[in-house]
Simulated scan of single mutants.
Amino acid sequence: MRKVRGIYLKNSGEITIMREANRIVSVILDALGEAVEPGVPTMRFEEIAQKMCQDFGVKPAFQGYGGFPFALCCSVNEEIVHGFPSVERVLDEGDIVSFDMGVVYKRFYGDSARTFGVGNVSQEATDLMKVTRESLLLGIEQAVVGNNLYDVSRSVQDYVESRGYSVVRRFVGHGIGRKLHEKPEVPNFVPKGTMGPPLKAGMVLAIEPMVCIGTHDVEVLEDKWTAVTKDRKLSAHFEHTIAVTPEGPVILSAS
């Protein structure tokens, strides 16, 4: 690993370790998605995540990070990110639920997120999830050597806004490696008056669009963690950890 302008570039061996960390995250997200159905308390997903971390012999990345009390971020409907699993919160038909999961494997982090529909969901919710997932993939396509980081940001923002949705600005993606959050920040919009760093082989980035049906304005609830849309309209969240390589972007957290 070497550092350029404050950004850690990973070598092939380190990327191999991160690929396994993110594979484990992907397997956990697969299992969580299979367990989604009406009537399930959201604490059940925390239990699944904890048990699978034990089975894989990995540490939950989020638990204890900044005081966060759970392994899993579980966010329902208008909750954008950092939602708490709960015994009282039970999924209803038509809800959407976002899972953000991370692990530590051999001192490297894996991080990924997906949003799932609960039973039969509305066309509005289906379209929101589809656009959010597609914006992530379009952003990843721009993560090539020689591009600027904000080429990724611009691709996400342009696609989302062209479909009539808004991109959350308060929370952004990030570099990832031996720390959960490394430089650079990866916004899903192009900040005004700034230039992003050039993309170099060895960068590993967590790209994570959070997309809203209404306003992108955010409110944080009394628990000091759960972020919701200010207008309480639906939000979806998809995230992949990717490596920038000479051959193009590689999704490390692919299912």
Results as ranks from 00 to 15, higher is better:
Met1Asn: 01
Met1Gly: 06
Lys3Val: 15
Lys3Glu: 15
Lys3Phe: 08
Arg5Asn: 15
Gly6Val: 10
Ile7Cys: 03
Lys10Pro: 00
Asn11Trp: 00
Asn11Glu: 13
Gly13Met: 09
Met18His: 11
Ala21Tyr: 07
Arg23Ala: 12
Ile24Cys: 06
Val25Ala: 09
Ile28Asn: 02
Leu29Ser: 11
Leu32Ala: 06
Leu32Tyr: 07
Gly33Ala: 08
Glu34Gln: 12
Val36Gln: 07
Pro38Asn: 13
Val40Pro: 08
Val40Met: 15
Pro41Met: 10
Met43Pro: 01
Met43His: 11
Arg44Met: 11
Ile48Glu: 03
Ala49Val: 11
Lys51Trp: 10
Lys51Asp: 15
Gln54Ser: 14
Asp55Glu: 15
Pro60Gly: 05
Phe62Ile: 10
Gln63Leu: 08
Gln63Thr: 03
Gly66Gln: 05
Gly66Asn: 05
Gly66Asp: 08
Gly67Gln: 00
Phe68Leu: 10
Phe68Thr: 07
Leu72Gln: 04
Ser75Ala: 07
Ser75Leu: 02
Asn77Asp: 11
Ile80Glu: 01
His82Thr: 00
Gly83Arg: 00
Val87Met: 12
Leu91Ser: 12
Leu91Val: 11
Ser98Lys: 14
Asp111His: 15
Asp111Ala: 11
Ala113Gln: 10
Thr115Cys: 14
Phe116Pro: 11
Val118His: 04
Val118Asp: 07
Gly119Glu: 12
Ser122Leu: 05
Ala125Met: 09
Asp127Ile: 02
Asp127Trp: 04
Lys130Ala: 13
Val131Leu: 02
Leu137His: 14
Leu138Gln: 06
Leu138Cys: 00
Gly139Phe: 11
Gly139Asp: 13
Glu141Cys: 00
Ala143Phe: 09
Ala143Tyr: 08
Val144Arg: 15
Gly146Ile: 04
Asp158Tyr: 06
Val160Lys: 05
Glu161Trp: 03
Ser162Phe: 07
Tyr165Lys: 00
Ser166Asp: 00
Ser166Glu: 00
Val167Gly: 02
Val168Trp: 01
Gly173Lys: 05
His174Ser: 15
Gly175Lys: 04
His181Ser: 09
Glu182Thr: 02
Lys183Leu: 15
Pro184Arg: 02
Val186Ile: 15
Gly196Ser: 07
Gly196Lys: 04
Pro197Thr: 03
Pro198Cys: 01
Gly202Ala: 10
Val204Cys: 12
Ile207Tyr: 09
Met210Ser: 03
Cys212His: 03
Ile213Val: 13
Val218Ala: 03
Val220Ile: 15
Lys224Gln: 04
Ala227Cys: 14
Val228Lys: 04
Lys230Leu: 08
His240Tyr: 15
His240Leu: 13
Thr241Trp: 12
Ile242Pro: 13
Ala243Pro: 09
Ala243Met: 12
Val244Trp: 13
Val244His: 11
Pro246Asn: 04
Glu247Met: 12
Pro249Glu: 10
Val250Ala: 08
Leu252Asp: 09
Ser255Met: 11
